[in-house]
């Protein structure tokens, strides 16, 4: 068992190294001159040449890569070409906002998606199933960026009940000291008992939260349904049914327990998709997270920033998958 987990972690590290190598190569062939970017929009040839040496861009590829890896091991992700700030510092500023959004979406996906999937499987091919399938498939078929625009149009412009974007109202952020423990406003304001800030932050969270959560809710519901359907056909379930166990017990205890593995994989997967959605809609909601950061970085071809976000998201994604795999492995019913 220990050996298996160790092996998985080792593999994860190898894969991560591959991810870094690929991203690094991609960013090195981006058709733009990082040195010119570094100096500023109207640089002279001499300035650019100086910057090339300063940034080590005159070195061979492999040496640059080696330096990047060794810096990375010290937690140094290089400097943003646009802001000249350490990418690690910038990420630290932007990550909490995105994590807050992703956590909320994942939570919604779990508490709404899983029951939806279960009922859908239970009433397979009945109207409840059709309805819930239509909803869950619909949720993964909507262009997120479009949903964002329309929620704004309805709830801000027409109904005027929810804010347009941002994490908190400006007058609140100016007049009051914002709590900063984890950087996640909802959590921090709740823990410190600043309910006015909490309420304001919560209202700001609703539209982006719903927008980003739609996809994972649909995804989790779909996957739970199909995982359950597979299990419900397995022999031991059929057998336990024929022993006359109540359907409820069969469904909730036996079947669901056995679908824990696939479900945790789905949750890990859904975090990936939630991240993807933050890339698309954070700009629309003026949400100061890594999604908006990377979309700005892509437009500005700020390659250290692109790499930073990619590595961070890949690490999160890999770690979640690892956890999911370990959960499956810990399940006594699964033999490794």
């Amino acid at each position: 068992m220990k050996k298996y987990i160790l092996r998985r972690i080792l593999l994860g590290i190898i894969v991560l190294f591959g991810v870094i190598a690929i991203t690094f190569t991609i960013t090195r062939v981006i058709p733009s001159d990082p040195a010119a970017k570094w100096v500023g929009p109207r640089a002279t040839h001499e300035q650019i040449q100086e910057a090339r040496i300063e940034l080590g861009l005159d070195q061979p590829y492999i040496i640059q890569f080696g330096k990047y890896i060794s810096d990375l091991l010290h937690g140094d992700l290089g400097y943003s070409l646009r802001s000249h700030q350490p990418v690690a510092t910038e990420l630290k500023n932007y990550i909490p906002a995105t994590v807050e959004l992703v956590l909320l979406a994942t939570l919604l996906a779990i508490i709404l998606g899983i029951p939806l999937g279960i009922y859908s499987a239970k009433y397979k091919n009945r109207w409840l199933d059709h309805l819930s399938r239509l909803f869950s498939v619909g949720a993964v078929s909507l262009p997120t960026f479009w949903v964002a625009l329309f929620l704004q149009l309805i709830f801000f412009s027409k109904l005027e009940i929810l804010p347009l974007g941002g994490r908190i109202s400006t007058n609140i952020s100016i007049m009051y000291e914002l709590p900063n423990i984890t950087g996640m406003l909802l959590f921090d304001s709740l823990v410190t008992g600043k309910f006015m800030i909490f309420k304001d932050a919560f209202l700001h969270m609703i539209l982006p939260g719903i927008t980003v959560a739609l996809y994972p809710i649909g995804l989790v519901a779909r996957m739970t349904r199909s995982a359950l359907l597979e299990i419900l056909n397995e022999e031991y379930i059929v057998a336990s049914r024929s022993y006359g166990l109540p359907e409820k017990t069969v469904l909730w205890i036996y079947a669901l327990k056995n679908s824990l593995g696939p479900t945790s994989t789905v949750v890990a997967l859904s975090v990936g998709y939630t991240l993807m959605n933050t890339f698309l809609v954070e700009a629309i909601f003026s949400w100061p997270g890594i999604g908006r950061y990377i979309s700005d970085a892509v437009i500005g071809l700020d390659y250290p920033a692109i790499m930073g976000v990619t590595i961070f998201s890949a690490v999160v994604y890999l770690a979640l998958n690892l956890i999911a795999d370990i959960i499956i492995a810990l399940d006594p019913r699964v033999r490794v």
């Binding site: 894969v15 591959g18 991810v19 690929i22 990936g272 993807m276 890339f279 998201s313 999160v316 994604y317």
Partner: peptide, 9 residues
């Protein structure tokens, strides 16, 4: 390696 990139990224 390719599957460890979050979707779209």
């Amino acid at each position: 390696i390719f599957l460890s990139f979050p979707p779209l990224l």
